[in-house]
Design a protein around this nucleic acid. Sequence first.
DNA 1: ATATACAACGAAATCGATTGCATGAAATTA
DNA 2: TAATTTCATGCAATCGATTTCGTTGTATAT
Lengths: 349, 349
Amino acid sequence: MSIKKEITIYDIAKALNYSPSTISRALNDNRSISKKTVKAVKAAAEEMGYRPNSIAASLRNNKSNTIGIMISRINRPFIASLISGVEERARKAGYNVIISQSNDKYENEINNAKALYDSRISGLVVSLAMETTDFSHFQQFVDLGIPIVFVDRVPEDFISYRVVIDNYSSGYRATKHLIEQGCKRIAHFAGAQHRNVYSDRLKGYREALREFGLPIEDELIIEFKTLSFEEGTKATKKLLKMKNPPDGIFSSNDTAAVSAIIYAKKHGINVPQDLAIIGFNDDPLASIVDPGLSSVTHPAVKMGNLSAQRILDHSKDNYDENISEVTILTTKLVIRESSSRTGIEETNI
Amino acid sequence: MSIKKEITIYDIAKALNYSPSTISRALNDNRSISKKTVKAVKAAAEEMGYRPNSIAASLRNNKSNTIGIMISRINRPFIASLISGVEERARKAGYNVIISQSNDKYENEINNAKALYDSRISGLVVSLAMETTDFSHFQQFVDLGIPIVFVDRVPEDFISYRVVIDNYSSGYRATKHLIEQGCKRIAHFAGAQHRNVYSDRLKGYREALREFGLPIEDELIIEFKTLSFEEGTKATKKLLKMKNPPDGIFSSNDTAAVSAIIYAKKHGINVPQDLAIIGFNDDPLASIVDPGLSSVTHPAVKMGNLSAQRILDHSKDNYDENISEVTILTTKLVIRESSSRTGIEETNI
DNA sequence: ATATACAACGAAATCGATTGCATGAAATTA
DNA sequence: TAATTTCATGCAATCGATTTCGTTGTATAT
């Protein structure tokens, strides 16, 4: 048995002695076709093993029913959950989801944008590559009225939809929490400052220190490149070697925070008594490390759902290209042992 | 400024006073077009902002250059890496990747198969849903000569490509390792036995016990439904309450293994001295938990690369539908403290 | 009985790119 | 010089589904 031929509406038309137009209408429940015919056509389609060719439909309708995703790397808990959320919502609506990874490289992002454009996606969900500072490769989508939803890592001044968390407030609350635990010298593991998520967290950190009358010391603010485990270990080492070491760390991600916990433990420094630590993202490992890492939770799946929804709701007709619609989700502090000098609690300040 | 019109080869044709055929050929470097014309056409295309419509090309060529992926959930370290590997390889070849999640539900898997079929994917990469025991929803792809690559969780008797790890050997080696550490009563956290990955690991476990003259006791083999943290905690509790509790656990995944470590620690049982533990997958948390969890590494990204490669290499012409080609990758034991009664080492038995 | 309305369907164009075949002109060969 | 290639390009069909106009035949209204 060799390769079968695909069944098209023409085959059904021939079998039932109808025109292809009628078959198409019947399959789409067009009411200008009699119920009897609709029933017969659907039965024949089922019987003959017909399956619509959505490529043909896409071409004709100028509508691919596909959402494109551009992210740095799939293999990160937050990103994976985000994609999961987009896929979940999209599929319910009969949309496909195409993914593309930039590996945080600007050049890859440009090429992926081209590839997705060529596929005539109906909408785009983007979390920017670490490197990206120019956004002109997104203009082609705007020109065609294709909605773009920037998520998490967003550009500051590109008119679009945006789905973000309250990074500033989160940074503020995380820092405030450490202060409330009695920390007087709090270090901050910052990310690349041209990315909103990291600069806003730093701003929140600064504001909390200011509000509580603590000095802001530049040597306690370390700007990371990738917030990796290795970078975190190095930074922790440097901090703890200071003659006046910090007694608290607010890290912009969990990986670096965990490295600090592990480094401190190995060097006999008590967490949280000598060094209280709070991370960001609430990755699975936060609840596994010992002591448990306090962190800031991201509603990642929900952010994905909302991003997809934005695209599904987008209408090319009544759409004002001069308006950015921003959805801001609140985060929650999850307090575990790494920052609990007074006992374990869970707050939602 | 309102929505722009898309530029097609017809627009270029009109602008340069050529026919669309010539434009098409020129853009594809067809050598029957003069170099001068090719140059002019490409310049005009660039200048006019032309971008190919791959939907139209797909329809005409009956080739979508798209790989479909069916997995349980994106948000799992192994799966995310697998997808990453597929995407990486596919994109280099100019292919898109569409993802679909089953959430381990058979019904979702069927619907996703339909959606991917309707998109006329060029190939399919599948890791089966936990529930799935019938594979007829994959037959439609086979009928059209569309290659299917089953990865990791594969069907036993469906002719196809397969990319797997040596689960039997891995189970054997993990168990043997525990025996070598002096364990006499080794429990096994098994997964659903209709899934090859879990039944093969159990077989390896049995074989190791047999070979070393240890009795196989059914009460030490616990079949999990999902290998979740909660299930793991429950199982560990049950095991440790036995009057003759085990002194070793080989778990089919890391999550359950970690739950055992944490439960044991909380109840004053020394890991690895009283209870040696080894997991499977080498998830990020394995190196974070304290004591570090020994585990079996999966080359997940590579499995993704190879799966994509299978599809890219697949030719409908010289393809024998009666042959299954199976790629078996070897795993490595990563020995950490959770099973090191004699000191830390890394083996590659 | 005549006009009108409507129900049910068909013909053909369309979406954008590709390609087999045809054509005319230039170049080569006999 | 005539015959034959080769080169560069155009024409028109094709991929499969959708949709705009029609076109029938029958039913309802007046």
